[in-house]
Amino acid sequence: MRTMTYAEGIREGMRKKMMDDPNVLLFGEDVGKFGGCFGVSAGMFDEFGDRRVRDTPISEGAIIGAAVGSAACGLRPIAELMFMDFATVGMDQIVNQAAKLRYMTGGKITLPMVIRLPEGGGVSAAAQHSQSLEAWLAHVPGLKVVYPSNAQDAYGLMVTAIEDDNPVIFIENKTLYAVKSEVEDELKAVPFGKACVKKEGTDVTIITYGKQVLDAMKAAEALAKDGINAEVVDLRSLYPLDKETIFKSVEKTHKVVVVSEEVKRGAFSGEIASLIAEECFYECDAPIKRVGALNTPVPFSMGLENYMLPNDKDIEATVKSLF
């Protein structure tokens, strides 16, 4: 065992596949010499050169469009948008092109491409640099959506994302980049559609992903002191979704809290809650609860932002409300 940061996990995943496959390349705003806005691609420009690690103009439509076009012609591009919020500028290329070209052409076009989207608040970046918009993307047939919570999964999901023959949305959390976690000596790929039970428990299931896995673990620790044994499920992959692990856990604990950093209205957490309501309602002996951000844009000032975003205390309180 050794430790690695989340950013290093992502980087090692990209490096591994770039070493394996000459058709893999990375492009985006400032990913080159600058090493990426958050330093995720640091050193890759020097290692692989400007042919394979390319700075683009600030032109999100062109970044995603170039990924679509080059993937259609045999490359396996990794396109980085500096902040997930900027996906709005390239949304046609994500939603109408990348997600749909295969379907609309009856399978005549294959798009093996990865779109990296750093999301989330907690860094006083205000409303245009802090959003969690995974529900928009998980909503669109044709996209796969994954979201690691730790270095090992960041590596493993990145490797799988690059190897996948479909457009993959790879969501990263900005506040996790510097967080270290334990990794195996030999890093392995993580399959899509397999959730990870981070902590086994018997009394309640906390279903979450990304940064909120850390909050949920903290909450579970506090709850244990009050005699509540929570199970924490890290989805890792929003689509394909590991329904089996979700249902198995609900059948065991009979209580569910779904947690994400999203604005609660229309959130992906609602999809999980409705899925449980539809498919295993009779296993639940309490209402399915959700924890999310308040229904406002993300505010700038630290106190306001902390108030708006969910934290471990909110999870703890919500779980306790079920007992």
Binding site: A66, V68, G69, S70, A72, C73, G74, M104, I109
Partner: peptide, 24 residues
């Protein structure tokens, strides 16, 4: 690489095709 129902969608996709050609 496809007809397209979004007006202007081809410009960036064509640039991507050009990138693949140049890369190879």
């Amino acid at each position: 690489l496809g007809a397209n129902g979004i007006v202007g969608a081809g410009h960036n996709i064509a640039a991507g095709a050009g990138l693949a050609i140049q890369y190879k």
